[in-house]
Design a protein around this nucleic acid. Structure first.
Lengths: 263, 263
DNA sequence: AAGCAAAGTGACGAATCGTCATATTTTGAC
DNA sequence: GTCAAAATATGACGATTCGTCACTTTGCTT
């Protein structure tokens, strides 16, 4: 039922992209897994989400069915692995966003920017995250993969926690009585998840059709952070300009590749 | 590719639960569809999300495969139909929530209450909504069903719009320049969707594990509505008490059935 | 009652999943 | 270098599941 783990059973470090491996074998295994994931993403991008089948992946790669199933215990497990990959890339972008120099609230905005950017650059992978939240997928994914996923989620929230902390230290944010970082993190995360999930599927006619996605996200974020009384409030500060600045200063390379792709 | 529509082609009214039908035939058809949906939900609740197959549904019901496929063009279409059903029930609960007497912001809270209540009472159906946002499902659902879904979403947002309007008329809420109802609706919706989606899958160990779900939702809502400067602000008003009051005054029957079920 | 359109039936073919007995490669000891 | 044991790879195969279609039945109209 569970996928064989070829790594040592020592928990919690398999998901880092660049890591020392016990030996060549494990390294090769990890590399092959990445290779398979890249291939799977390509198939999905080309043939649609339901166009991805295990058989197609097997044919497309240089390995056999058994080998592929050594990596992914089921199709759902493969989807979760893609979700994990997506989150790993998010973390990398988040870390980049942390480099933005500014007030605490501006720096959190940089994280949101990174999130949105990731969704735009890798829509397919982003959808995998949504899909991985689905019971049909969770039910059939391997235990190990789900654990990995949960760990990454924690890791993502820790990035935010840093900024909450800075906000408090700088005196820009106060933690209400009985409220912890977790509450704030959850609120920030829920809004980001909800906004992006709904925006992603809404390029056509719906409620959100006419709303510019970027604008909407920024608006929503301002709402929540204003609600936290995180100064400077949106009425006292030009966060739209800040948003632009984040793009220019931190993510210019990503933006240009994005423009190239859509051109 | 598309499911045959046995109703008149006049658009936009098929989704109302109680409606006049052109003739007995259509009525029977609609009733059977509901019957099938109830059955499908039961199978899903009992055997898990991936335990629902078309074959099982066919065996469980008194009709043949062909008949079932006359209703649902594919398994994904069936899932969407369940999603539609879920939204119809939500609307009914929303309408009930509208009956709450109070200030505009309190009344919007009643809508959130209804949303949360629905998620608790029908977790399976609620998951269908999440699943229906997934590309794998959207790709294979019938056009007609997706239209129906989009219409219902609009209808849901209109309920909220009423309350935004009341808020403005009462002077409790001001629409910033360049901001429309749609923006506010979207923010409210995104937060509700994100919070509930994340809370639903998080009864166990994760970031949200220790946070009481109800509390978290109320907290998040307060954050956003405070961000809108919707008076009275959460610091000036006891919305937790209001939340309790909503439960008692409006949804007491639902609450008792819920307690019965979990006892 | 006859005729006809609409709906129902279920056997069937195609596609997909995941397994397992066997073949191959790698490892490590001498 | 050699050889046995352990790890890994292979792909044919059985089991589901999906969705279709040629044919039958139902029920409405005249």
């Amino acid at each position: 039922m569970n996928i064989k783990l070829h790594f040592g059973k020592g928990g919690g470090s398999e998901h880092c992209l660049l890591k020392k491996f016990k030996n060549k074998r494990e390294q090769a295994f990890a590399e092959r897994e990445q290779e398979l994931l890249v291939l799977a993403e390509k198939i999905m991008a080309k043939e649609g989400f339901s166009g991805l089948t295990m058989d197609k992946l097997v044919v497309a790669c240089d390995y056999s069915k058994g080998t592929v199933y050594n990596h992914f215990s089921s199709k759902e497990d493969l989807l979760c692995a893609l979700c994990v990959k997506s989150m790993e890339m998010e973390i990398a972008l988040f870390d980049k966003g942390l480099a933005f120099q500014g007030r605490s609230r501006e720096r959190l905005l940089a994280i949101y920017y990174a999130y949105r950017l990731h969704a735009l650059m890798h829509p397919t992978l982003f959808y995998c995250v949504l899909t991985a939240k689905t019971p049909a997928v969770k039910e059939k994914a391997s235990e190990a993969r789900l654990t990995q996923q949960a760990e990454l989620e924690l890791q993502l929230s820790h990035v935010c926690d840093q900024l909450f902390e800075q906000g408090i230290q700088d005196g820009d944010l106060k933690l209400p009585a009985g409220i912890t970082y977790s509450h704030l993190s959850f609120a920030a995360w829920a809004l980001a998840f909800g906004s992006n999930a709904l925006l992603q599927g809404a390029s056509e006619a719906t409620l959100v059709s006419r709303i510019n996605a970027q604008e909407a996200l920024l608006f929503n974020v301002n709402l929540v952070l204003d609600g936290m009384h995180w100064t400077p409030l949106s009425q006292d500060w030009d966060y739209r300009a800040c948003w632009q600045r984040i793009g220019k200063k931190i993510f210019s390379t990503e933006l240009s590749t994005l423009e190239q792709a859509s051109a």
